[in-house]
């Protein structure tokens, strides 16, 4: 099985981060924008306007409880996909887990207590297939519940559309 391991500095945010506003300006949801190159520039700018310029592919975003809450618009999670980062959250709202998988975001969605396991800037290593989280700056290790294989497969192939095409090729509809 292909590995899905991210290693880099982490960016820690709090509870109740919203889809609209925090993760993505609402106008992109209203406009049904799905182009990653457009959404990348605005990803998470409600939390930190400079973030898209500072964050690097392979970095890790750590969120608190009820991450991606509010109207389940997918644009915020497409923005995170566009940044090329991995995501660990304490809990995620109904609909937003589907959106994360469909956007092709590597995610550990049920990491109770992870907010206190790192501070912004710590270097962490996360294996999305096994759920093992290492804070290399602190020298600590935790194990969280990984996504089941069938959802990891969707993430790995790049999200909903790529997965739809794969299913189509398999059944030959």
């Amino acid at each position: 099985m292909d590995q899905l391991i991210f290693k880099g500095p982490c960016w820690v945010f709090g509870d109740n981060i919203g889809n609209d506003g925090d993760l993505m300006p609402l106008r992109f949801a209203i406009g049904r924008e799905t182009r990653l190159e457009v959404l990348r520039e605005y990803a998470m700018t409600g939390l930190d306007p400079e973030l898209p310029k500072r964050i690097r592919p392979g970095d890790l975003v750590i969120g608190g409880r009820r991450f991606a809450q509010g109207n389940p618009h997918i644009q915020g999670l497409l923005g995170i996909r566009a940044l090329g980062v991995g995501l660990l959250v304490e809990s995620i709202q109904r609909g937003s887990l589907r959106n994360a998988v469909n956007a092709g975001v590597p995610i550990l969605p049920f990491c109770r207590g992870v907010s206190s396991e790192a501070t912004t800037g710590d270097v962490v290593e996360v294996d999305f297939c096994t759920g093992v989280f290492r804070n290399l700056s602190r020298g600590t290790e935790r194990k969280y519940e990984p996504l089941p294989k069938q959802l990891l497969d969707v993430v790995r192939i790049g999200g909903w559309e790529a997965n739809f095409r794969r299913r189509l090729a398999m059944v030959g509809n």
């Binding site: 389940p72 589907r98 469909n102 909903w160 739809f164 299913r167 189509l168 059944v171 509809n173």
Partner: peptide
């Protein structure tokens, strides 16, 4: 379901 209703119809 939202967009994935397409999966239900196709598969």
């Amino acid at each position: 379901f939202l967009t994935e209703i397409a999966d239900v119809l196709a598969f």
